[in-house]
Design a protein around this nucleic acid. Structure first.
Length: 585
RNA sequence: GGUGCGCUAGUUCAGUCGGUUAGAAUACGUGCCUGUCACGCACGGGGUCAGGGGUUCGAGUCCCCUGCGCACCGCCA
């Protein structure tokens, strides 16, 4: 037996017990006649002591130990003469009678402690060492607990966890696919699923009316702090349901998660906001509702006073930054620079300072003090606030102001990771116009059903058609989304037509689904949550990488495995593949 | 595809206006030390200043190219 206890479990009541521990040497403190060893496993740290009167052999072994040596210690639990209140095991120590080196270790490239001295890149290369650190262990444990909580809830609700294949066919719509060449079918490729969307719909046709899966999905797009090429979805689908049924189940599910994982009781119903409202009030389809600073339309008040910047704009919108009247010229200039950065793209920033005696603004030459005050008050500004106004094309101005709102909130410390503001955004538009390719794309995906009352605009004004689609949003992040699907082959064909598919192309790519719909498809719908994002939300981190055991770096590389990499010529030959120099691409 | 920031000891970083032998902390090694827990003290080893090119009497420092990393925009139905 390698151990009788873990390194985190011994307490004062265990004094006088003879125990065997095994773990990694975190640190050795040699004081001459006596040596202290911090022994670590994933349960904690226990101090081992080697004393003057210990056997010569034990002392000799202790002298050989280095960081991260794997050792086994047999010894007696003692009450410490000098207790350490910072450690849960700080009242005791284990006096070693025998130390056995189970494995030696090279000096690690960074310190494996609560706070490491290593940089991101290095820690990623030696991820298995970084994972020994308590913060990473807490992240892995959180993820495990969440997965358990998900399964417990959905199982109780009657959902079945059914696996779907990873090797499926490619569909060029949407994100780029990762493809896998087929040896047995030369020149043909599988694709890894971007999501099991069509497969779960087929499960509905098959009669499994409540399905879920915690499933890996793959998208060959550029990475971000919250985007990995392979990520995990909590994928759910239900039959014989309307939007309301789905929102009801998954609102209870979300509350269950907050309760079990964070111990938070959310009793109020989640706020619901239409997409149009979210855009006008927050300039985003995923508003951060942890704080106010809502937008107001001041177009009517701003125009017609000879200020051409506003007069020439389609839309003028602003918000009151709470308590920011004290901002200095330098701070305002910095925010102006912020909105003028190419990533935001505004031309300039108008401000109104709400002081005790009156207003002061960057547009005082063009408006009377009453007119300025009217605009500020329309934005809900009070004395002590600073109003920021942007103008331009409606949705451009709104999204630019959204970037500013989040920046100001960040500076004011309002984006508190311990606070949660969950909500539903509903009534998304069905289609999104793409300037580049001059065609409509499905905003959610092409299996989403349109709202019945908007179906009349399908041909004449597709941009006006709303979908039965909804997102679960928390703290400015899209955590999940879904829709009521189309279950009618004819309607599905009509949507493909609106998206510019020829009947032949639609048949070639999605024939399997439309054919299935001819065999008695039930009304159905569902949604999927980003599991990694949910973990980082609950864990209070910005990056999902901390919650993935072996993540990819910014360039989609696994620096630990050094993947992707070249393959043998034999493998290439078997797959009928030929390499091309990058320059010839 | 694009923008910004970064790359100096095992690690995290400093390095002034371009000027002698590139520093600190930590880690590592050796010695001393009986209550440490960020142990302490002393000594020691450790550098392709990311790579290449250029400017200059002289480049870690200035310029150009390439690579790598991080964040973001595009992209992510």
């Amino acid at each position: 037996m390698y151990r009788t206890h873990t390194c985190g479990c011994l307490r004062a009541e265990d004094v006088n017990k003879t125990v065997t521990l095994a773990g990694w040497v975190q640190k050795v403190r040699n004081l001459g006649a006596m040596t202290f060893i911090d022994l670590r496993d994933r349960y904690g740290i226990t101090q081992i002591v080697v004393e003057e009167h210990s056997s010569e052999e034990t002392k000799a072994t202790a002298a050989q130990l280095g960081r991260e040596y794997v050792i086994q210690v047999i010894g007696n639990v003692l009450e410490r003469s000098a207790k350490n209140s910072k450690m849960v095991t700080g009242d005791i120590e284990v006096a070693a009678t025998t130390i056995r080196i189970l494995n030696q270790a090279q000096t690690p490239p960074f310190t494996i402690e609560e706070v490491s001295d290593g940089g991101d890149d290095l820690r990623m290369k030696y991820r298995y060492l970084d994972l020994r650190r308590p913060p990473l262990q807490r992240a892995m444990i959180l993820r495990h607990k969440m997965a358990q909580a998900i399964r417990t809830f959905l199982d109780k609700e009657g959902f079945l966890e059914i696996e779907t294949p990873y090797l499926i066919g490619s569909t060029p719509e949407g994100a780029r696919d990762f493809v896998v060449p087929s040896r047995m079918n030369p020149n043909q490729f599988y694709a890894l699923p971007q999501s099991p969307q069509t497969l779960k719909q087929l499960l509905m046709v098959a009669g499994y009316d409540k399905y879920f899966q915690i499933v890996r999905c793959f998208r060959d797009e550029d990475l971000r702090a919250d985007r990995q090429p392979e990520f995990t979805q909590i994928d759910c689908e239900m039959s014989f349901v309307e939007q309301e049924d789905i929102l009801e189940v998954f609102e209870r599910w979300a509350k269950h998660m907050f309760h079990t994982v964070l111990g938070m009781e959310l009793t109020e119903p989640f706020l619901r906001m239409t997409w149009a409202e979210a855009m006008e009030r927050y300039g985003s389809d995923k508003p951060d509702l942890r704080f106010g600073m809502e937008f107001s339309d001041v177009t009517a008040l701003a125009q017609g006073h000879g200020f051409s910047v506003f007069d020439d704009a389609e839309y003028v919108t602003g918000f009151a930054a709470t308590g920011c009247a004290t901002y200095t010229r330098k701070q305002i200039d910095a925010l102006t620079e912020f909105v003028k950065r190419p990533q935001v793209g505004a031309k300039g920033l108008i401000w109104i300072r709400m002081e005790e005696g009156g207003t002061k603004s960057s547009i005082d030459k063009f408006y009377t003090p009453e007119e300025v005050r009217a605009m500020a008050e329309r934005c809900g500004a009070k004395t002590g606030d600073m109003v920021f106004i942007l103008c331009g094309k409606k949705f451009k101005a709104l999204t630019q102001l959204c970037a500013l709102r989040l920046e100001v909130a960040e500076q004011l410390g309002l984006r508190d990771p311990k606070k949660f503001a969950p909500m539903w955004v509903i009534d998304f538009p069905m289609f999104e116009w793409d300037e580049e390719t001059q065609r409509f794309y499905a905003m959610h995906h092409p299996f989403t059903s349109p709202k019945l009352e908007d179906a009349q605009y399908m041909e004449s004004d597709p941009g006006r058609v709303r979908a039965n689609a909804y997102d679960f949003v928390c703290n400015g992040t899209e955590i999940g989304g879904g829709s009521i699907r189309i279950h009618d082959a004819k309607l599905q064909a009509q949507i493909f037509k609106a998206l510019g598919f020829t009947p032949e192309k639609a048949q070639a790519q999605f024939g399997f689904l439309m054919n299935a719909f001819k065999f008695g498809a039930p009304p159905h719908g569902g949604l999927a949550f980003g599991f990694d994002r949910l973990c980082s939300l609950f864990g209070g981190a910005d990056s999902i990488r901390d919650y993935i055991a072996f993540p990819k770096n910014n360039n989609g590389r696994d620096v630990m495995l050094d993947a992707p990499s070249l393959i043998d010529q034999t493998q290439l030959d078997e797959l009928c593949l030929q390499l091309v120099k990058p320059a010839e691409k």
